[in-house]
Amino acid sequence: MEKKKFDWKKITGSREMSLVIVLIVLCLFVQIRNSSFLTSETLEDMFRNYAVIFILALGMMCVLLTGGIDISIGSTLAFSGMAAGLVMRDYMIPTPVSFLLSMAIGAGLGLVVGMIITKGKVPPIVCTLGFMNIYRGLTYLIAKSQWVAAYQFTDSFKNFALTKYLGFGLVNNMIAVTIYCYIIFFVVMKWTTIGRRVYAVGSNVEAAAVSGINIGHVKIGVYTLMGFLCGLGGALWTSLYKSAQGDMATGIEMDVIAACVVGGVSLTGGRGSVVGVFLGSLTIAIIGKALPLIGVSQFWQSAIKGLIILVAVILNVLAQRTMDKNNLRRREM
């Protein structure tokens, strides 16, 4: 029994190892072409700009773990970021209030999505496809097609993305928030019953129901959590770019889903880890940051990005296959 447990750990460990190797090769290649890549400044820029994707990928992982999907996140982010931005414009609220407001709005939007998926039994992709349109439309409407411009934000809000007070003076606030999120998720997903329930719902719904888990609550929970993180993302986004625009974060859902699947999260539910998601998001961030640095022609960047995603997921499958085979062989012996 103990031995079997050990094997499983090894497998999850090495599945992620294959991605780590790909990443190292990618980084080395970029570093050789442009030595300014692996400098603290470039890396800080990268983590700062992609903090939102890193954070959203965590929520997306939970949604995917339950066998669902959420493609409305870009619109949810825009709506909550815009709503909080408008309130700040008109009432000059303090920064923490603005963040809380944005997160609350996001959670509310996510709750609606979760309710309709579980209570209305609408397939997740259809429901979130609909809400992608609805929330985007509403974003334009509440803003009356205006943007919230830099001078309309308070200084403390604009400085949030520049200062380091949440990171104890060591790392930028944006990065600090990302790190905290990852620590919380790592602990919760690995060592608490909440985390185990999410996995249980995704890997075997019937078994989970029999064992007394309220499937509906878990599902509503993950979509609300996703919405909450979108709200956080919306506040971070507006703070980072010092501007709230109706069309912000359009298409971010594809990047976030790509980050998850590259990180080994299964779209059929039940499989995926926080470490994997981190590596997946890192891959997306490196592609976005490094390709302009090594002078890859503008026009080739999407093609390369698509190719890397495909190669990464196929490598993942191949690694899994060899491991399964080794596993079988060991069992035979």
Partner: peptide, 9 residues
């Protein structure tokens, strides 16, 4: 999703 990005690329 991968080919979506690739083909447009």
């Amino acid at each position: 999703l991968g080919t979506q990005i690739l083909y447009r690329g």
